[in-house]
Amino acid sequence: MQNLNLPNYKFKLKSNENKTLIFDILRKKYMVLTPEEWVRQHFVHFLIEDKKYPTSLIALEKQLTINNRKKRTDILVFDKEGKHDIIVECKAPHIKITQAAFDQIARYNLKLKAKYLIVTNGLDHFYCKMDFKNETYIFLKGIPDYK
């Protein structure tokens, strides 16, 4: 898999039926290693190991319904009170991050009301803090460490 613009982490990999699998520490099972999963797993480890977010506050591929359609967030982080804090939208490294990715995460956030939005393809990361009063987001250099 491609090197990403994130720290290197030790992953458990294995092969099964000509597919490479990666162990997901949150779902506690092996997942098919796609380029998007590679980015998701790196970002999960970044949140846990570098930003110190507790694993108990992170959910992967959480389902939500928007306009009677089922959608899934890639990574959803909760705060200590159980409110939505951060939504992370992961794209494969070869996918250029466009306005469409921001539109997608913004639609999710109309329902979830998270404080921070992140869009990443593993190479480029865009961090935003919501300004609910002015119905916009403010770009940041990163996200705060867990407190």
Results as ranks from 00 to 15, higher is better:
Glu61Arg: 07
Asp50Trp: 06
Asp131Met: 15
Tyr137Cys: 09
Lys28Thr: 05
Ile143Gly: 04
Thr20Leu: 13
Leu47Cys: 04
Met130Trp: 10
Gln99Ser: 15
Lys28Cys: 08
Ser56Tyr: 10
Pro7Tyr: 14
Met1Lys: 08
Ile97Arg: 04
Glu89Gly: 07
Ile75Ala: 00
Thr65Ile: 09
Asp24Ser: 08
Gln63Phe: 03
Leu123Pro: 07
Pro35Trp: 05
Asn8Asp: 07
Lys141Cys: 05
Ala100Leu: 15
Met31His: 12
Ser15Asn: 15
Tyr116Ser: 10
Pro7Lys: 15
His125Gln: 13
Lys12Trp: 14
Glu135Phe: 13
Pro7Leu: 15
Leu110Met: 14
Val77Trp: 00
Lys10Ala: 08
Leu110Lys: 15
Lys96Gln: 06
Leu60Cys: 06
Lys70Cys: 00
Ile48Gly: 00
Tyr9Thr: 02
Asn134Cys: 08
Ala114Phe: 15
Pro144Val: 11
Lys29Gln: 09
Ile87Asp: 01
Thr73Ala: 04
Gly82Cys: 00
Tyr9Val: 06
Glu89Ser: 11
Tyr108Ile: 02
Lys133Ser: 03
Leu112Gly: 05
Ala59Tyr: 12
Val39Ala: 05
Thr98Gly: 08
His125Ile: 13
Asp85Gln: 06
Glu36Asn: 05
Asp131Ala: 11
Leu26Asn: 12
Phe78Ile: 01
Glu61Ala: 03
Pro93Lys: 11
Ile118Val: 13
Lys52Pro: 02
Val44Asp: 02
Asp124Thr: 14
Asp79Ile: 02
Glu36Pro: 01
Thr98Trp: 10
Gln99Ala: 14
Val44Ile: 12
Glu17Asp: 15
Ile58Phe: 08
Asp85Glu: 05
Asn18Ser: 09
Pro54Asp: 09
Arg107Gly: 03
Leu26Met: 10
Leu123Val: 12
His84Ile: 00
Lys51Gly: 01
Lys141Glu: 06
Leu140Met: 14
Glu36Val: 06
His42Gly: 04
Gly142Gln: 13
Phe46Met: 09
Ala101Phe: 14
Gly142Cys: 09
Met1Glu: 02
Lys83Cys: 00
Ile22Ala: 08
Asp79Phe: 04
Asp50Pro: 01
Ala101Cys: 14
Pro7Glu: 15
Leu60His: 02
Ile118Ala: 08
Ile22Ser: 07
Arg72Gly: 00
Leu64Ile: 10
Leu117Cys: 07
Tyr30Pro: 00
Ser56Ile: 09
Lys62Pro: 01
Asp145Pro: 06
Val119Arg: 06
Leu57Ala: 04
Gly122Val: 04
Ile22His: 08
Thr55Lys: 14
Val77Pro: 00
Cys128Met: 14
Asn67Gln: 10
Leu13Cys: 07
Arg40Phe: 03
Tyr108Phe: 04
Gln104Tyr: 14
Arg72Gln: 00
